[in-house]
Design a protein around this nucleic acid. Structure first.
Lengths: 216, 216
DNA sequence: TTTTATGGAAAGTTGAAATTTTCCTAAATC
DNA sequence: GATTTAGGAAAATTTCAACTTTCCATAAAA
């Protein structure tokens, strides 16, 4: 067996300071910050380049248009949205405890400033970048929904709960948990939602979802 | 008693074709349509003037900047958001019927294409026009919330339901009813929500809210 | 040394829109 | 008629930001 030495045959001119991929990554980080703060239209390319410590010439070499940069930023962030519970870590739990865990994880994801900022961005630009809206919908919304649905279905199968349409119920559950605080933050009427608030909201939500509030 | 004739003492030059207020109103209607369709940045002043059948000169006389026009458009629309049920029309009803009515009215309001378009607009521009976001929050969101809260509180007082925090429960109820469909429309993943869907969602929502889904 | 390539700094270029101005005609009063 | 005012059409101006280009110092191979 003979190991092939990697050919260090350098090309003629001055070598790159770093790989294009690394530079792209630096740019995406800078762009992410700016877009999140100021939105698409108000962010300008020069400031992104400056923040990344790169010339606009280089930026344009790696991202031909502002729109390309924006898409990459958002898609990368969307890809990282994952609900922070393993499905099998819920397995041993009682109905109530499991649901609470699930809601806490979902709340932490959807109520983080970061997620809210990206969500706002996607909503704002869904006219200009409809494909992004679709990616967001499928990767961020539908995917986490499915995870919750699977768990609820399992509970239904073991007769712990009674639901005729799990998908709709899941949507309702999600709405209960996040709509109001998320929107308040999105509209700048509330700062960050604390973890305590998330936990206590999850608890109430769980209670209401499982038991309702009618005095029978 | 002597009626004062309104002094028709006309000023010197050519009279106005119509009052400035009327012209403003025509402009606002045209602008409303354009902003709703294309958003703030993509809408251009010339096309608004053209659609309103007015010169840009006149437009600028009445609305010094694009931002002023935008604010007036949105504020006027927000003012018209009213939940379509009289509180006393709910009075004679059973718990379940009353809640269902309330939810249907709330659903019709928040799931209309028009409301969704304005909501999206406000979210999109909340960075540039934070005062608008605040007005929206108070006039559109908080005001309809209060109406629902009052009704739920009344039900609690007559021991029909058990809730420790009515405000939070109201927020959850609202989220159940609208978050999911509203967001799908906002992201362009769903067209208009039909009235049948609204009604049936309201029914499910009511059921879940009142009774929960746990098999005790 | 000469050749080739990299990438920063900074000065263009371009295009789209907002905002202003000019010019002009109509409709009133004096 | 002379003077004044309203308001349209359209050209001019301004502004702003995306995108390009130029110029240059630097590093490495040949």
């Amino acid at each position: 067996m003979e190991m092939q030495l990697k050919p260090i045959k350098r090309p003629r001119g001055r070598p790159q300071v770093r790989s294009d991929d690394e530079t792209r990554s630096v740019l995406i980080d800078a762009a992410n910050e700016q877009f999140k703060k100021a939105g698409y239209a108000s962010t300008n390319i020069n400031s992104i380049a400056q923040m990344a410590g790169v010339s606009t010439k280089t930026l344009y070499r790696l991202f031909p248009t502002k729109g390309d940069l924006f898409s990459e930023v958002v898609e990368r962030r969307i890809g990282s949205f994952l609900i922070g519970v393993d499905e099998h870590s819920l397995e041993g739990l009682e109905l109530r405890d499991g649901l609470e865990r699930l809601l806490i994880a979902y709340g932490r994801l959807t109520l983080s400033l970061d997620t809210i900022a990206i969500t706002r961005l996607v909503i704002s630009e869904s006219e200009r970048f409809p494909e992004l809206a679709t990616v967001f919908f499928q990767k961020a919304i539908t995917r986490t929904s499915r995870a919750m649905e699977r768990w609820l279905s399992a509970q239904r199968d073991k007769k712990a709960i009674a639901l005729d349409d799990v998908a709709i119920a899941t949507g309702m559950l999600r709405g209960m948990m996040t709509m109001e605080p998320q929107r308040a933050v999105m509209l700048g009427q509330l700062g960050e939602i604390s973890d305590d608030e998330i936990v206590s909201r999850a608890r109430r939500c769980c209670e209401l979802f499982l038991n309702g509030c009618a005095n029978i």
